[in-house]
C-alpha cells in the first residue's frame, strides 16, 4: 500500500547540463529566485542534482509549527502553502535546501515530485528531461541493486533525515595532465 518513490542519481552519467533544473521551472513555473531543483558542481569531476528528497524522516515535518507538511502514501512530501506562515524554520532545518522561500508570496514552496504528472503515469519533469539518464525514479521499498550507495561525497549528511535518493558512485578513470 505505502511505498516510497525516490530519485536515483548516477554520478558517473551527470554532465551538469542543468536541463533538469530548467525543465522543473518550465513545468512548475516557479518564481525566478525559487529553485526546486539545483545542479551544482561539487568537484572538477562531479555534479550533483538535488531537489527535495522526500525523506523518510523529513525534518521539515517535525519543525513546522503549522503542521503544513503531509506525506503521501507514495512517500511524496508536500507542503500546503495555505497553512504556511512563512516562518522559514523548515528552510533552516532541511539539509538539502529543499523548502524554498518565495518572497513574492511570503510562503515556502518545494518540489512536489511532479505528483500531478506521476498520477497520470508520467515521469517528473526533471527525470524526463535528463538526456543522459543520470537522474531516475525508483520505488525504494522494492529497489535492489548492490552497486547503489546511500550517499556520495559532497552530498549533505543523510543521517536523521534519510533522504529518498540513492546513488551510483563514479568509477575509476585514467587521467593525464600536462606538467604544470
Amino acid at each position: 500500500m505505502t511505498n516510497q518513490v525516490g530519485f536515483i542519481f548516477d554520478a558517473d552519467s551527470c554532465i551538469g547540463c542543468k536541463a533538469c533544473e530548467v525543465a522543473c521551472r518550465n513545468e512548475n513555473k516557479t518564481f525566478d529566485g525559487v529553485k526546486w531543483r539545483r545542479v551544482t558542481k561539487i568537484s572538477e569531476d562531479t555534479f550533483l542534482s538535488v531537489s527535495c528528497n522526500h525523506c523518510n524522516n523529513p525534518e521539515c515535518f517535525r519543525v513546522c509549527p503549522e503542521n503544513a507538511f503531509t506525506k503521501r502514501y507514495d512517500g511524496i512530501v508536500l507542503i500546503d502553502s495555505s497553512l504556511c506562515n512563512g516562518c522559514k524554520i523548515c528552510v533552516e532545518a532541511c539539509p538539502y535546501n529543499a523548502p524554498q522561500f518565495d518572497p513574492e508570496t511570503n510562503k515556502v514552496t518545494k518540489c512536489q515530485m511532479c505528483y500531478p504528472r506521476q498520477d497520470q503515469g508520467l515521469l517528473p519533469a526533471c527525470v524526463e528531461a535528463c538526456t543522459t539518464s543520470a537522474l531516475g525514479l525508483v520505488d525504494l521499498e522494492t529497489f535492489v541493486d548492490p552497486n547503489a550507495v546511500p550517499a556520495i561525497e559532497g552530498f549533505p549528511d543523510i543521517r536523521i533525515t534519510q533522504p529518498s535518493i540513492v546513488f551510483y558512485p563514479q568509477r575509476k578513470k585514467d587521467r593525464y595532465f600536462l606538467n604544470h
Binding site: 523518510n56 524522516n57 523529513p58 525534518e59 515535518f61 517535525r62 503542521n67 543521517r159 536523521i160 534519510q162
Partner: peptide, 20 residues
C-alpha cells in the same frame, strides 16, 4: 493524537543521535 507525528519524527532523530 494529531501531534503524534512529531513524536514519530523525534523518535527517529533520537535514534540517529543515539547511534552517533
Amino acid at each position: 493524537p494529531e501531534e503524534l507525528y512529531k513524536s514519530y519524527q523525534e523518535a527517529k532523530v533520537a535514534y540517529e543521535l543515539g547511534r552517533l
